[in-house]
Amino acid sequence: MKKTIKKLTEAFGPSGFENNVRKIVQKEIVSYVDSTKKDTLGNFIAHIKGKGPKLMLAAHMDEIGVVTSYIDKKGFIRFSNVGGFFPIHSLTARIVFENGVIGVIGEEGRKSMNDPIEMSKLYIDIGAGNRKEAEKLVPVGSFGTYQREFVDLGKRIVSKALDDRIGCAVLVEVIKRLKGKSKFDTYVVFTVQEEVGLKGARTSAFGIEPKIALAVDVTRTGDTPGASKMAVELGAGAAIKVKDRAIVCNPLIVKKLKSVARKYKIPYQLEILERGTTDATSIQLTKGGIPSGAVSIPSRYIHSCSEMVDIDDVESCVQLISKFVQTGI
């Protein structure tokens, strides 16, 4: 599974540019599902036929990134954020563009090290000598992401874009393990443009009209030095979302997930996330309303180039979702 995770996280895929990720997912799952399709916005939808109610499982393929907005005379490139790209995480990090060009994030000189880091004072240096040179490689309007390799620390793994390629990897694995034992008519959706407003989840849910939906995404943890209080820890199991900034998860789904976890002795924890949200929020409000919940993979350093998750948690998430699908509601 780590091999798939490595492939998925190292793929280039900021919001709106999910093609590469889709291709990897497609290759992994195509022989395990009844049909696949790509919809208008680019969501990749896999259907596993079953007799029960329609279930939608969703993980987003896109990652946070940047888009270039201006190149100055000397060839330094200014940029805007795509989703929650945090300036504080970005200093001297490397950015890769769709065509493979790599640049370094630099910062205008500041008077004091205590001054805040502002987006408008950052630039990307691709080593160009002037505007013309830079323009040829990275014209205005180019999308980029962090450039960082996957690292296996053993029990834990580190990479960019674990948000939410780890969710994609979990669902790929769930698909492989289901083997026709589903209590649902299951649609697994690898969504687009989550980071810029939960967009793909909304439109794919509209098309599918599921009776129930589960999003699979990362959540933060409260277990690092000085972290703001949160009960989720790395390595303590799959996180069953109860509430975040924008959704109160359907209580019956939460209850069912908890009982499945207990029954099969799958380690789990309850997630109450104060900031941030996920695809479940927009699925919930689609059409006449869709009961929705989420299973989260605990992650440290979210939206940075070195996000960290615990591989046992990943396994717990796979088990929990698989058993849930096989148990029914």
């Binding site: 916005l41 793909g200 909304r202 439109t203």
Partner: peptide, 10 residues
Amino acid sequence: GRIQISRKGV
């Protein structure tokens, strides 16, 4: 921004 995410996406 609104029309893009209406129905099945546009």
